[in-house]
Design a protein around this nucleic acid. Structure first.
Length: 415
DNA sequence: TCTGGGGTCCTAGGACCC
DNA sequence: TCTGGGGTCCTAGGACCC
């Protein structure tokens, strides 16, 4: 029996949500009606556009470009800083509406969900009509617009929703693939990105249709399993399930930062690592896991990225231990190049069952108690209510991670 | 290209074991 | 001492997503 899947995607999510929130607070101005954007700190060299309004789009402002570039194109661009707590609230509110139409919902990202509508026709009615009702309710009750794709699997629903934005419901059923999907450029296909598209072009593949009708075995010899996957996608084949998730199970936690200047001495680099360890450690403990793999990555001023990782037998969630591992990895990795960007990631999780841990772990209870106490103070007051002394007057932020602003975004509890 | 930050998955090669 | 092949684990790096 064939399934019925919806893909729901918030249009320019961050910007829409900022606009709605401001209107609700009584502001007159609707950010969506002027050239505006959500972006990182414009004074820092790494400030970039995270989302833009439709009027901003007319100035050819693109997501991901620097604020500097954007201002050159549109000097009067109105830029606001991101507020992740707000986005999580909006995302949750949308999820609450979706839940009324099916229990099988996968929260794919903060602004995207898959919904398995299979078998619910008798309860709520025709899929396209219901998709329109959902779209209308979100607009009416929450104040922002979504695009919904309707089809028989997740891939087609997602590609379908992309066909028309904003504020639209679009079907992409298997019998519509050749008309609606195949004429599109191949890089519009999910999982065909910057690296794959030129390779496909070299094989004479320019549209999704070209890919769908290309010889699979030849494609596989060039692109291995990735080739087979995108060939399936081009033909509308996808057997993945809507994985029910009111919270997504996470596999890794990482934070990284581009420094406001290139770091060239080891002491400063270590401070940045400590700062990142603090954020990663807090999030890890908050998630209820311990990790047994730590990796460290460096991006040089020439944009060359390298990483080292280390796996160990005793899982940990201690800030201090994460930092010690990170420091060792960094010292192995660093050859003295100017450092633009540093990152730490932990993965290979297991539950942080206390009893077992205390038996196995040299990381003593005192250390654990300190981490816990600090976490509680930060949760109760603010993330900067307690910081390490070494950061005072150092010019280095004591808790790094997250985009732009100083506040550590507490997202891990839901995504 | 004055190129962010947070994720996931895959592959290749080396080490090590039987 | 030279030689094998298969399996698993670990690490580095690449590619993609939002």
């Amino acid at each position: 029996m064939s399934k019925t899947i919806f893909h729901i995607d918030v249009n320019s999510a961050y910007l829409s949500w900022e606009a709605v929130s401001r209107l609700q607070k009584g502001e007159e101005l609707d950010l969506r009606t002027i050239p505006s954007a959500v972006g990182g700190n414009p004074k820092k060299r790494n400030g970039i556009i995270l989302a833009k309004s439709i009027p901003a789009k007319k100035y050819k402002i693109k997501t991901g470009e620097t604020l500097h570039e954007a201002f050159k194109k549109c000097p009067e661009l109105y830029v606001v800083s991101p507020s992740y707590d707000l986005y999580m609230k909006c995302s949750n509110a949308m999820y609450e509406i979706l839940k009324e139409y099916s229990p099988k919902i996968q929260r794919y990202s903060v602004d995207e969900c898959f919904l398995d509508y299979t078998g619910n026709e008798e309860l709520f009615g025709d899929p396209v009509e219901v998709a329109n009702i959902i779209k209308g309710r979100i607009k009416e009750e929450l104040g922002f617009t979504v695009s919904i794709g309707v089809s028989t699997n997740k891939l087609l629903a997602k590609m379908g929703g992309d066909l028309k934005k904003p504020d639209a419901v679009t079907t992409l059923y298997p019998e519509e693939i050749s008309d609606k999907l195949w004429p599109l450029p191949v890089n519009d296909l999910f999982m065909v990105g910057r690296a794959t598209a030129p390779k496909l072009n070299k094989l004479g593949i320019y549209t999704i249709g070209d890919l769908a009708n290309f010889d699979l075995s030849v494609l596989k010899s060039f692109l291995k399993s990735h080739g087979e996957m995108i060939w399936n996608y081009a033909n509308g084949i996808d057997h993945s399930k809507v994985r029910k998730s009111n919270r997504i199970e996470i596999k890794g936690i990482g934070n990284s930062t581009t420094m406001s200047y290139d770091v060239e001495n080891i002491k400063e680099a270590h401070m940045v690592l400590l700062s990142l360890s603090e954020t990663v450690g807090m999030r890890l403990r908050d998630s209820g896991y311990c990790a047994r793999l730590v990796s460290v990555g460096i991006k040089s001023s020439e944009f060359i990225y390298r990483s080292h990782q280390h796996k160990f037998n005793t899982p940990t969630d201690s800030t201090q231990q994460i930092y010690e591992h990170a420091k060792k990895l960094f010292n192995d990795l660093w050859t003295g190049e100017k450092i633009r960007h540093l990152g730490i990631r932990v993965s290979e999780f297991c539950d942080n069952d206390m009893v077992q841990l205390n038996l196995l772990d040299p990381y003593n209870e005192k250390e654990r108690a300190i981490d816990k106490a600090i976490d509680n103070i930060r949760k109760k007051y603010s993330s900067h209510s307690i910081i390490r002394g070494c950061f005072l007057n150092s010019g280095i932020k004591p808790l790094m991670g997250g985009v732009g602003e100083d506040d550590y975004p507490v997202m891990s509890s839901i995504l």
